[in-house]
Amino acid sequence: MISKANAEHYIWGEVCDGWRLVDRPELSVIHERVPPGAAELRHYHTQSRQFFFVLAGTATLELGGVRETLGPQQGLEVPPGVPHQLLNLSDADIEFLVISQPTTRGDRVLADE
């Protein structure tokens, strides 16, 4: 059984948390927490297809130049090759799952602004 309590934990962007729930070459499932005002760098994946699913809070996901607002129990798929960026423009933490197939390890390319 896996949970945030026993999963591998890491910090990204100096203030954001990630917990690796599934970490296999063919599939990655990560539970992430992003505090208000934090964001990931705009990037894309050459191979990985991702699905972001919000558990708590309100996330903004910029996908190919279009911003979508996702609330709890809402998700959005990101195909390979599409630049994207997750932002927390709200005043509360957001928690979400990001599911990647295959894993994004070694498959992240920073996108031009």
Rank of each mutant, 00 (worst) to 15 (best):
G57P: 11
C16R: 06
E62W: 00
P35C: 04
R24L: 10
S48M: 05
R42F: 00
S28I: 01
R24Q: 12
N88T: 08
F51P: 00
V22Q: 11
G81H: 07
P35N: 01
V29P: 06
E32S: 08
D107F: 08
E95C: 12
P79S: 15
F96P: 03
S48C: 14
S100Q: 13
L21A: 07
R24N: 03
I99F: 07
G57Q: 05
I30V: 15
E26H: 11
H45Q: 08
G81L: 09
Q73W: 08
T58A: 01
E14V: 13
R42C: 10
L55Y: 04
A38D: 05
S90R: 03
R20G: 00
L61V: 15
E68H: 15
R49I: 07
V82I: 14
E68T: 14
L61M: 12
H31N: 05
S90H: 04
N88F: 02
A92G: 02
L21D: 07
D23W: 11
Q50W: 07
T103V: 03
G18S: 09
F96L: 15
L55H: 07
G37V: 12
R24K: 14
D93S: 02
E95R: 13
P25D: 05
P35R: 02
Q50H: 12
G71A: 00
P83E: 14
D93H: 04
E95M: 12
F51L: 14
P79L: 15
E77C: 09
G57E: 04
C16Q: 10
P80S: 13
P72V: 00
L63Q: 06
C16E: 10
D17R: 05
L70W: 09
R108E: 10
I99V: 15
T69F: 02
F96R: 05
